[in-house]
């Protein structure tokens, strides 16, 4: 596995070492060792309940919001363990942005939705430019440029999700985490989001949790397959270049899963 990533000869955006995540006494995820390539799309797949969302949320410390959760092991970001005592989760989240399963724009105007994150993070530049740039990057500008003052909630589901992506881009993160970003959308909106993700790859490292194997096969560069063991703790089964994983899986479980025999 290490070979595989090193073949690409780049540096890692995020790297976990022996990561275990607990909710109280329950171990949700065990012994995860993963490296994510910068400016690539990595998909996390696996049956529901296998902890892939929990893994994703570990990268911007969103799990901290669940009071009973705690993490064992290390998550490295630019050589720094994100779970060291001196690391501020607020700062982490600005650098590791997140797009959620259901579109969740603020009940504010479209403009403010994009500008808000930048504002609280001390953005000093021209806000109008930032809003336009971000909306363009999220492929939403043409649809909303005449109604920036309208509520973000007035948009369609797919537009709302792209607005959420624009909002994330505006704070200039390095990594964007996406938690099944298209699962609540219709097929056409899904397609647009997938195209958008491909575009974003130029500038951002993207880690995406998905239910949809076609989506993973179509749009990711790497795929990690998770499963859960008898204690319902999630673990990593196989991690490789997407093409390889889908064409010649090394693990029997992976093969069963991608051919639709369980999950």
């Amino acid at each position: 596995m290490t070979d595989l990533v090193e073949n690409h000869n780049g540096k890692y955006a995020v790297e976990t070492r022996d990561m275990n995540i607990y909710y109280g006494a329950f171990r949700a995820v065990k012994d995860i060792n993963l490296q994510f390539k910068a400016r690539r799309i990595t998909a996390l797949i696996g049956p529901s309940g296998c902890g892939k969302s929990t893994v994703l949320r570990a990268f911007n410390r969103m799990n901290d919001l669940v009071p009973t959760s705690w993490l064992e092991g290390e998550v490295f970001f630019h050589g720094k363990n994100l779970y060291d005592n001196d690391v501020d989760p607020v700062e982490v989240r600005r650098r590791v942005g997140m797009v959620f399963q259901k579109p969740n724009p603020f009940p504010k105007t479209i403009y403010d939705n994009v500008a808000w994150g930048a504002k609280i993070n001390g953005y000093k530049g021209d806000m109008d430019i930032l809003v336009e740039q971000s909306l363009r990057q999220a492929a939403l500008w043409d649809e909303v440029k005449d109604k920036l003052g309208q509520s973000g909630l007035s948009l369609s589901g797919g537009q709302q999700q792209r607005l959420c992506i624009a909002r994330t881009i505006a704070v200039k993160p390095e990594i964007i985490l996406m938690d099944e970003p298209a699962s609540a959308l219709d097929p056409i909106s899904t397609l647009r989001i997938e195209e958008l993700i491909q575009d974003l790859k130029k500038d951002y490292t993207i880690i995406i949790v998905t239910h949809n194997m076609q989506q993973a096969a179509r749009s990711s560069d790497f795929t990690a397959f998770f499963n859960m063991d008898d204690d319902r703790a999630g673990y990593l089964v196989e991690y490789s270049v997407t093409n390889e994983l889908f064409t010649s899986p090394q693990n029997e479980l992976t093969e069963q899963y991608i051919t639709g025999r369980f999950g």
Binding site: D88, V90, I120, G122, Y123, K124, K172, P173, E174
Partner: peptide
């Protein structure tokens, strides 16, 4: 965190400025 990871150093506070911005927000 190191300078080199800053994505938009012109517009977002960096280094010490950023440290103090965050510290202020936490206060």
């Amino acid at each position: 965190m190191s300078e080199k990871i800053e994505r938009d150093p012109e517009n977002y506070p960096t280094g010490a400025a950023q440290q103090s911005q965050i510290a202020k927000r936490h206060r």
